[in-house]
Amino acid sequence: MDQVRLPIEKIEYFIQHESFVVLVVALLFGWIFYKLFLKRISEKRHTTLRRRFMKTGLYLVLAIVLALLHWGLIQATWTDYFTVKVANYIGLVSFLILVTVLIRCAQIYVYLYLFLANMSQGVPRLIANLFTLLFSTFVVSWIAADVFGFNLATVLATSAIFTIVLGLALQDTLGNLFSGVALQIERPFQLGDWVEVHNSDDKWVGQIQEITWRATSLLGFGDELIVIPNKTIAQSQLLIFSDRNKPARFSQAFRFRFDVDILKAKAAILEGIKAVPEILEDPEPRVLVLEVTESWVSMKVFYSVTDYGRKYRVGDLVVSNVLESIKRKRLTLATPVLSLFREEEDHD
């Protein structure tokens, strides 16, 4: 007798040809939908969907082959006890792979919906992963109770203490998870946005690349990958620079000699600014006098750009072009002035 009795009748009910036909049709329908309506998505998204379709298709083929092998062994005229036992375990593996294909198909449809609804915007993996977790939990619970006959109420009752211990051990992980979910609900930023994260004395600047269970990934100006826990993100002050909001506003100061012609200096700065193609004309650049002392006049130019990631490149062009414009107009920047006083002793 088997030490472990498989509910083979229930398993065989699910590895009939009807189940495989439904999954094949669902996979083909998803592929046709992808080809018809998602032509304009990014190459990265194309790669993601193709890989998922390919892997899911391979799993489905494997499940079909194992199911055919199971039925072939069961219906063979020379079957014995050992052959039936092997066939039953092959049927079990086919059934488990079939369940995996079902979950992966559902996940593919989630990606199709998210990519269609956010054609030009980033889609964090956290949303798809959360759906996969919830759907997998539902399917596995149903299979455990209906197919294998587990009493889930008893299992949950006896595991209460274990759940408490596990929750305490995973406190930080769960904090990051729920913070990530909160970020997805509030959606203060999206993939592709530039953010400055200020937390106490720490500061991180980068472009949002991904939001996962544990952390948010930024790509810095030097192409370095910055991984910040979601809990830290939720507790930090955020400065968000997004194309959907107002363009990013920057400034650069210049200090002229006290006797400078202010109108001529402002014209020189604006002339240099207009030579930078990345700077927007609306809102237009402005030059303001900020400070006047006995030695210099300080002016600052304010300008706007759409792409925060080009901050340093645009800043370099601004300084270079304005300095060239100042030279052409024969203006002079202020230089540090050091005054020395000599005290002579009184010999009387």
Rank of each mutant, 00 (worst) to 15 (best):
E12F: 03
I15C: 03
L23I: 04
L23A: 12
V24N: 02
V24D: 07
L28V: 14
I32R: 03
F33C: 00
K35A: 12
R40D: 15
R45S: 03
L49M: 14
R52G: 03
L60Q: 03
L62A: 14
I64N: 01
L68R: 06
D80G: 13
F82M: 08
V84G: 02
A87G: 04
N88Y: 07
N88W: 07
Y89I: 02
G91I: 02
L92F: 11
S94N: 03
L96I: 15
A106T: 08
Q107L: 15
V110P: 06
Y113S: 10
L114D: 15
N118Q: 10
Q121D: 15
F131E: 09
F135L: 12
F135K: 04
T137I: 09
F138L: 13
I143D: 11
D146E: 15
F150N: 00
L152G: 02
V155D: 01
A157P: 05
T158D: 09
F162R: 10
L166K: 06
L170T: 10
D172P: 00
T173V: 05
L174V: 10
L183S: 08
E186K: 12
F189T: 05
V195K: 00
G206L: 08
A215C: 01
F221I: 07
P229M: 04
Q235N: 12
S236P: 01
L238M: 01
I269W: 12
E271Y: 03
L280S: 05
V289A: 06
S298R: 15
M299A: 11
V301R: 13
F302V: 14
R310Y: 09
R313Q: 14
V314G: 07
G315M: 07
D316Y: 10
L317I: 01
V318Q: 10
V319R: 14
V319Y: 14
E324S: 12
E324T: 08
S325Y: 06
I326R: 04
R328E: 13
S339Q: 12
F341K: 13
